[in-house]
């Protein structure tokens, strides 16, 4: 089912997207628009293709051997899967935060933050300092690490590591930030901090967040997409999409209602 009508000026527009792992079809014919400077949450039972879907948005899907894709993903009107589009450029514009924190263990906190921008043009030291401070602030981590920027990224707690990964992604200044269950491996306090950080991000970024946690989706997001599989082994589908408030208060489809009210999942 396609939900293309609700958003007038999308940053990302997905059209008829099918995704495969080898012969297995993981996602069937998804259409979706993602609103600029808004937070879009993707919810649904495990294995329904939410993570696969967001990996399709920045072409991380194709790093898995045997993975392939059909359909279009338009970023500012341009198909990221068009011929002669370099996936490296797509990923500069569409950043990603993963489920488990994955800072680079051999780098300091400071170097972790600038790992991405060091790939691009050269920056002055003062510029880098400024970027590190700003992005760590945006990720709500600056206060905790400003006195130990030279320490290893591994010296931080799990929640701090994840916020470091968010800062690292912000430093590249992508248009869209994809988050794949960024708080699922963390304790409630860390989760709270990350949710706060995400709320602030939408001033300058477009955020897509996959979550298992319905409260989280309803708390932080403006739009919600519900993914669903009809039976085991079938491909995932975008079952319902709309403004978060509407999805949670007045879902149109029965399965959505069952899921958001916690009757299964």
């Amino acid at each position: 089912m396609s939900y293309l009508h609700e958003i007038s000026e999308p940053v990302v527009e997905v059209q008829d997207l099918n995704m495969y792992y080898g012969a297995f079809k993981a996602l069937d014919s998804v259409g979706m628009k993602i609103a600029k400077n808004r937070i879009t949450a993707l919810i649904g039972p495990s294995g329904c293709g939410k993570s696969t879907f967001i990996r399709g948005l920045n072409r991380m899907h194709e790093t898995v051997p045997g993975a392939r894709i059909e359909g279009k993903v338009l970023l500012d009107g341009e198909d990221v899967y068009a011929e002669n589009v370099d996936p490296v450029r797509v990923r500069r514009k569409v950043g990603m935060v993963f489920q488990k924190p994955n800072p680079f263990p051999t780098m300091s906190i400071y170097d972790n933050v600038i790992a991405g921008i060091k790939l691009g043009r050269r920056h002055k030291k003062s510029e880098l300092d400024e970027i590190v401070e700003r992005t760590l602030n945006q990720a709500a981590l600056w206060g905790e690490v400003k006195n130990k920027l030279k320490d290893s990224g591994m010296s931080l707690s799990g929640g701090q590591q994840q916020r470091l990964c968010i800062a690292r992604t912000l430093a590249v200044e992508p248009e869209v930030i994809l988050m794949d269950e960024p708080a699922s491996a963390l304790d409630p306090i860390s989760t709270q901090k990350i949710e706060d950080a995400i709320q602030d991000l939408k001033k300058s970024y477009t955020v897509v967040i996959v979550t298992h946690n319905m409260q989280q989706a309803s708390r932080v997001s403006d739009y919600t997409g519900f993914f669903f599989i009809e039976e085991m082994g079938a491909p995932g589908q975008l079952w319902e999409f709309g403004e978060t408030e509407r999805i949670f208060s007045n879902p149109k489809r029965k399965e959505t209602e069952d899921y958001v009210t916690g009757r299964f999942g």
Binding site: L75, D76, E78, V80, A82, N84, V85, D86, V88, R89, V90, K93, L119, G120, R121
Partner: peptide, 15 residues
């Protein structure tokens, strides 16, 4: 086009 613009400068060198 931002994604498809011809490769130049540093990006070309990286490629």
């Amino acid at each position: 086009s931002q994604l498809r613009r011809p490769m130049t400068g540093r990006f070309k060198r990286r490629r």
